[in-house]
Amino acid sequence: MDMRFLFLGDTVGNIGVATVEKYLPLLKHDLKPQVTIVNGENATKVGRGINHELYLKIMNAGADVITLGNHAWNNSEIFDFINQTKNLIRPLNYPGKDVPGHGYIEMNVNGNQVAVINLQGRVFMDEIDDPFENVDNLLTQLHKDNVNIIFVDFHAETTSEKKAMALHLDGRISALVGTHTHVQTSDGQILPHGTAFLTDAGMTGPNDGVIGMKFEPVINKFMTARPNRFEVQETGSAVLSGCYIDVDSKSGKARKIKNILINKDHPYQEF
């Protein structure tokens, strides 16, 4: 019997949260996933971090797990609640002792042990602990505990680091989906040893800016090479990007991966 994962890419600003609230219940009705994961690291109105109100909104819309990324700590309110919200996970490889929150979650889903892991890359990003070593150590523990259905959100900048991680973990996890670049890729595939891979799920948020930001300051920075304050696009149309993945619940191997894209050019339709 297959287990279905539904994953939505980076939720950006007010438009992103509203789009999750609008479409996630419809997607869950049509696709009937057993596990729904939403990346919420850009959910605040300024596009950096998440707060408790937005955490509740995304969970109430139908998420089972919310993942984060390099903006996890940008909203200081997170320190007030992340230790009490097991369904909100931050990158496993954040450095230091006593890091707030958790880098993964284990769940029992219809009698199957499932783990969702959040990792962050290092190329062109903050210099944090090695994600390869960290996930290797965690997988040793999970496999000893007979957890073989494992989903990884790898929040990273470069396509090469994401593909390298996917190949490194091929056959040891069920799926690895990249986040962070906010642009959906079309390379969904099942790797040779049974791991589903997508370089980037894309974003859920404003469709008319530049990866969720107002385009005028971005253009100005490109043209002048001077600093500009970027702000989240607050008007215009929305985009929802993500994917769903079917996994054999006995072997933990992926059977299918398919992109989801909803915007003004790709209106919602039943799956």
Results as ranks from 00 to 15, higher is better:
D248N: 11
V65H: 01
I262D: 09
G212W: 01
L176K: 00
T224C: 10
R90V: 15
M1S: 14
T44A: 00
N74W: 05
V116G: 02
A115D: 01
N118L: 06
T11V: 15
G209L: 10
K256H: 15
Y94N: 08
E53Y: 08
T19A: 02
S174N: 03
N108D: 15
N108C: 11
Q141W: 02
N108Q: 15
I15K: 00
S76F: 10
A164D: 07
P25Y: 11
P25W: 07
M223K: 12
Q141I: 13
F7Q: 07
I15T: 04
L31V: 03
V114G: 03
A43V: 07
V218C: 13
R90Q: 15
M59F: 04
N93D: 13
G188H: 01
N148I: 01
A225N: 15
V114A: 05
G69Q: 07
G188Q: 07
S237Y: 09
N51K: 02
E133V: 12
A254G: 07
S249I: 08
P25V: 06
L198P: 10
V177N: 02
T179M: 13
P131V: 14
T199Y: 09
K253Q: 10
G171D: 04
D126P: 02
I37R: 04
F222P: 07
E53D: 11
L92E: 09
G178C: 08
M223W: 12
Q189N: 12
F154I: 04
N137W: 01
F5D: 09
A43L: 03
T199I: 09
A238M: 09
P25C: 03
V12Y: 07
G178K: 08
A156I: 05
T67H: 01
L261M: 14
A254M: 08
Q84T: 12
A166S: 04
P192Y: 14
F215C: 04
N228P: 00
S174L: 00
I128P: 00
V116C: 02
M165D: 03
D170M: 04
L142Q: 01
L176C: 02
E106F: 05
Q184P: 04
A238N: 05
E106S: 11
D200K: 12
T44H: 00
Q269A: 13
P91W: 05
N220V: 04
V152C: 04
K258A: 13
I105D: 10
E161D: 12
L88V: 01
V65R: 02
G47E: 12
F5V: 10
K28F: 05
K250H: 14
R122I: 15
S174V: 00
G121I: 08
K86R: 07
A156P: 08
G111R: 00
Y268M: 05
A175K: 06
V218D: 11
N39K: 07
I245M: 11
A18F: 06
F230R: 00
N112R: 05
G96I: 13
E106I: 15
D187W: 14
V20F: 06
K144S: 14
I50T: 03
H71I: 09
